[in-house]
Design a protein around this nucleic acid. Structure first.
Lengths: 199, 199
DNA sequence: GAAGTTGTCAAACAGTTAGATGAGAGCATG
DNA sequence: CATGCTCTCATCTAACTGTTTGACAACTTC
């Protein structure tokens, strides 16, 4: 059932051996991302994560201090990554679409975030900075009667919608949420809605 | 920690005794709704559900054939309830707000739905009927360049946003997602956005 | 009132899970 | 070559979880 049916315990591969620790860490994090984003914390099994990484599950304790530690590390990592995203130079519409594509290409981050939200885990993310949104509103990128905060949250919601409600996509559109047809259609509609919010 | 710390096994209460089976069933369903919507299927414990209901956990097997059966029954019930909602007579804006208030008053249904979506459970919900949305569009309730399906999904996303991303609400607005302040602010903004989508 | 059914419970059971233990291989340093 | 350190693994274990079992009381039917 699981990836590698048999691990022939191949010779530790001489020069590969040296960077093994960092490599193992990375493999586990990657496998954990798959597993946790797919089944959530409670549903994920450390055995499955280890299998996916092709490593012994004890290494999870060794490197991260257990299942919980691995999960936390994953959250921290994604936070670091997401922080490097906003770019004031690019138009709002383009910015949102950029997020959207990211979400389509790899929904794991969003799924993880939703799971954390649902289980009520409190990350220590700082207060979101709205000055950029206000600037955009002043520049005419956003209608005056709208609350920048609300628009921001709506964009979050629309970007993550395909990941959080795939069933609704199938129900309403009758196509798969990860099909190219839906991707294009949704992106185009997202653009139009944002334009409507500017007028 | 849990509700009833001690069950004094009070006398079965003569005339109450008669409708006990139906009452127990209801109590379990109610408790299960709390528990599942809070922690999801994998995270919920039958013991906790039983404790919440003030009943023996064996009754879950007795009435529903186990944890899974109880969970399924819950899904079916919510589906039945949700089906009685749409009303073609009422304006679109009002309809969405009605959903929103429902979601605020009792977020358990939405949380449950999101959990089901995340765990990839396939309910047998029928294909959504879009003719009503098309009619509204023809009647001028919706701009012509927008896809009715997309607008519908966006509304779903916005209605459930407070439940699916409470952390984002705190981050962006700096207030609690279930506070009256946020409720009013979000409802008002939702109305305005929908009006923007009509023009 | 005897027999059977129904609703309820406590205790036992079997399966699973995360983590602990201890051992061993590779490699560097002396 | 001996010693110690880092990384890895297989096995064991203690705890927990959902379900089964067996018992029992209330009520119904005969």
């Amino acid at each position: 059932m699981h990836g590698t049916s048999k691990r022939p315990r191949r010779a530790p591969t001489p020069e590969e051996r040296k960077q093994c620790p960092e490599r193992s860490r990375r493999l586990l994090l990657e496998a954990a991302m798959d597993e946790f984003s797919e089944k959530g914390f409670a549903g994920a099994r450390v055995q499955d994560i280890a299998d996916r990484a092709g490593l012994n599950k004890q290494l999870i304790t060794y490197y991260f201090g257990g299942k919980q530690g691995l999960y936390r590390e994953l959250g921290r990592e994604w936070l670091r990554r997401e922080a490097t995203f906003n770019d004031p130079a690019v138009p709002f519409e383009e910015l949102v679409v950029r997020y959207l594509r990211e979400a389509f290409d790899d929904p794991r981050g969003i799924r993880l975030a939703i799971w954390q939200a649902l289980t009520g885990e409190v990350g220590d993310e700082p207060r979101e900075d709205l000055s950029d949104m206000r600037r955009r509103q002043a520049a005419g990128e956003l209608a005056d009667d709208l609350d920048p905060a609300a628009v921001l949250l709506m964009c979050y919601a629309m970007v993550s919608a395909p990941a959080t409600m795939p069933h609704a996509v199938r129900q309403i559109f009758g196509i798969e949420p990860d099909s190219p047809e839906f991707r294009e259609r949704w992106e185009e509609q997202l653009r139009r809605v944002i334009r409507h919010l500017a007028a």
